[in-house]
Design a protein around this nucleic acid. Structure first.
Lengths: 231, 231
DNA sequence: AAATTAATGTTGACGTTGTCAACATTGACG
DNA sequence: CGTCAATGTTGACAACGTCAACATTAATTT
């Protein structure tokens, strides 16, 4: 869930107060912005964080960036293209987070797999606005740009590679790695979405998030069979 | 993924042809519709199926129902309330599907749990438009009506009860049923969302959906440990 | 049966949206 | 210095969500 406590400094461009209309940011009286495309993406993300992806408007994003309402159309064919750029950035950041978490265990593939998944969930919960855009209904993978497809595929590929590395070491069973990767992905994606949408908190789960994540790991490694060793 | 082959008769109110503007349905020249609230929900669902939840407009829904653009405001305070009504209906249908699947195994709690999850996924994949609205960003659980909260909670409760029944019979391990229910829910929700959003097909998974579901069940029951019996 | 009230529908309007065309400004290039 | 391309602005359009005021009809009360 997006709360002030889950925000990081990297998430926030600025903060507006409820009921106070935004004053357009005046850029430095120069006609050419110089880096408008990137600035628009940053502003869009700020609006997503504050108000949700569905509240983003091209006009507000332009105003926050200090340009007129039609300027974005010089850098993005339409609104959806701007949102797709936000999504691509999110995938790149998420893969970086997954890989950084894995890097702490260079010689232990099972831990690498575990922290690959933990990195995924941490990113999603630290950047719920980004995550919602990355996996929102507005993103049709069949119409995505090649750049976005590559960024999106990298997250699954990272997970898949972590599983095949475990199989090579013999620390997981030797079944179909695609099916195993799908199970992992479904689990981490489903959990992330449920928490972001506030569906977990509303059921008063009594565990902290780390304990919930441990529960997911436990379920995936040991399964539900009654004859397993207790955690 | 929404295709003509996955639609059921219950999904479709009518079908429009691309490029052909909708002609407003003229109702029977009566001033009072008589059942407008339900008709608006049906029309909204039809638009969601055809164009996606984000393309729904109050004006188009009203036109398809044969009333003026302001008539919906006599039955719903705003657009989001209409979408929430669509979501509630979806939860009710989903829980009915889950329970109907479970009913085939009155004396086998493990099969009941398995088919509870399968019923969940089947509903989501048979009714992707409904499912997207049910779990979309537009639905804030903290602001949901009591009716919607109850309908939403019923799906989790059904899953939770299936797990505690398994524990009572000793066919799953005796850990925290809440954590186990969360793992199940994350798995079925994540899988459903990934398929609906087209993220699974684009990775060329070579299994049919039933085999994919078996893979999820396998992962959740047996886990990834290498010392388990092969499926 | 008539009058009154409530429910429900319509018309028109407003502010905002996404997006486009035409024009304006400035940086890059020859 | 002139030309061109990139990029920004202004203004306009159709459509949106939602509201107020009005219109119609069903239900209720007298």
């Amino acid at each position: 869930m997006l709360t002030l406590s889950t925000l990081t400094a990297n998430d926030v461009d600025n903060v507006n107060i409820k009921g106070v209309p935004i004053s357009p940011v005046k850029k430095t009286d120069a006609y050419h912005h110089g880096n408008l495309r990137a600035a628009l993406i940053d502003s869009a993300l700020a609006v997503i964080i504050e108000k949700g992806a569905e509240a983003v408007t091209i006009r507000e994003v332009a105003a926050r960036t200090g340009v007129s309402h039609a300027a974005p159309y010089r850098h993005f064919p339409d609104k959806n293209a701007l949102m797709a750029a936000v999504a691509k950035e999110g995938f790149d950041l998420m893969v970086a987070r997954m890989r950084r978490r894995m890097a702490a265990f260079p010689d232990d593939p099972l831990q690498r797999l575990k922290f690959c998944g933990i990195g995924y969930i941490e990113f999603a919960l630290d950047h719920p606005a980004h995550y919602r855009v990355m996996f929102g209904p507005g993103q049709d993978p069949l119409r995505a740009s090649e750049a976005l497809k590559l960024s999106s595929a990298a997250s699954f590929q990272t997970l898949f590679d972590a599983i095949t590395a475990c199989q090579a070491k013999g620390v997981v069973h030797g079944g179909d790695p695609m099916a195993m990767a799908l199970s992992c992905w479904a689990m981490v994606h489903g959990f992330s979405m449920l928490v972001i949408d506030g569906l977990v908190q509303t059921r008063a789960f009594h565990s902290a998030l780390p304990a919930m994540m441990d529960g997911l790991v436990d379920s995936l490694y040991f399964g539900f069979r009654p004859d397993r060793e207790p955690l």
